[in-house]
């Protein structure tokens, strides 16, 4: 009964991955892939400034987005779970994740509309006199971060909210009963209790964010490239499969390291 699923995973996931490892050790001669067993590609990733920079750009953006999303989502989830009347909670939550239902590509495009030089945000800011003239946000890192944060705030609000409402209200009652002021109840009791859920959500954010091509491509443009953009560049412009493979494996290694670093806080079965 388990065999079909295992077989599928083996043939279409494990085998391609093994092939990719092999490919990453090959190199390109002209337009031909020549199989070899050299670590040249990896060496180049860490020496070639444009490639090495990609790793840092990706890590910086991902770290910033993860932290920002958690910081924005937690209060939102808490407000929905504890301030909004229970009968409205489902509706409010549904509204909070509404943009999930646009296509991923379209969502990035919408931000391009909003953040553009002639977009709504600049119009308002200039209109109320906060800015003298439009500032360039599109095609900068800021646009990428905003686009990503938008998506992951929704995701995290959802996971943190479901975590919060599963907590027995007696935890908060007990803390208040013992004399804790409201903010201490949140900081010392509620927040720590949601930490496993937060960590799981943050890890998910990290994984999805660092591997995404669309958002940085549409919003960040080509000024600074993230790892997925670099991988696509190798494929598109030069057909350099060996380099693309090596970059992919470095990307995977980063995710694996992140997983190992946070494994003890994660409850993957909850995802």
């Amino acid at each position: 009964m388990i065999a079909p699923a295992l077989l599928w995973t083996l043939v279409f996931f494990v085998v391609p991955f093994a092939a990719m490892v092999l490919m990453s050790l090959a190199h390109l001669e002209g337009r031909e892939v020549v199989q070899g067993y050299a670590l040249d590609n990896y060496l180049r990733i860490f020496t070639d400034p444009s490639l090495r920079k990609g790793i840092f750009v990706s890590l910086e953006i991902t770290a910033l987005v993860t932290v920002l999303s958690v910081l924005l989502a937690w209060p939102l989830a808490w407000i929905i779970a504890s301030r909004v009347p229970p009968r409205w909670q489902r509706l409010v939550l549904l509204l909070a994740v509404l943009p999930f239902w646009t296509s991923y590509v379209v969502r990035s495009y919408s931000w391009a509309l909003v953040l553009g030089e002639k977009g709504v945000v600049m119009n308002v800011l200039v209109g109320i006199g906060l800015l003298a003239e439009p500032v360039q946000i599109m095609a900068t890192r800021a646009a990428t971060v905003i686009g990503f944060t938008h998506f992951f705030v929704m995701l995290l609000t959802l996971t943190i909210y479901s975590n919060l409402i599963q907590l027995s209200p007696n935890y908060a009652r007990a803390a208040e009963d013992l004399g804790a002021p409201k903010w201490k109840v949140i900081w010392l009791v509620i927040l720590p209790l949601t930490l496993p859920g937060v960590m799981t959500g943050a890890f998910l954010t990290f994984v999805l964010c660092i591997g995404d091509y669309i958002t940085p491509q549409i919003l960040g443009g080509n000024n600074e490239l993230t790892m997925p953009q670099l991988i696509m560049l190798q494929l598109g412009r030069r057909g350099d499969f060996p380099m693309a493979s090596a970059l992919s494996i470095v990307l995977m290694a980063i995710v694996t390291l992140a997983y190992l670093a946070s494994a003890r806080w994660l409850r993957m079965e909850r995802v």
Binding site: F13, P16, A19, M20, L208, G211, I231, F241, L251, V255
Partner: peptide
């Protein structure tokens, strides 16, 4: 496969 970026899965399949 859940922890691997879609891009990497796609690349692997493309090569295979």
């Amino acid at each position: 496969p859940m922890t691997v970026s879609y891009l990497i899965i796609a690349l692997g399949l493309l090569q295979m």
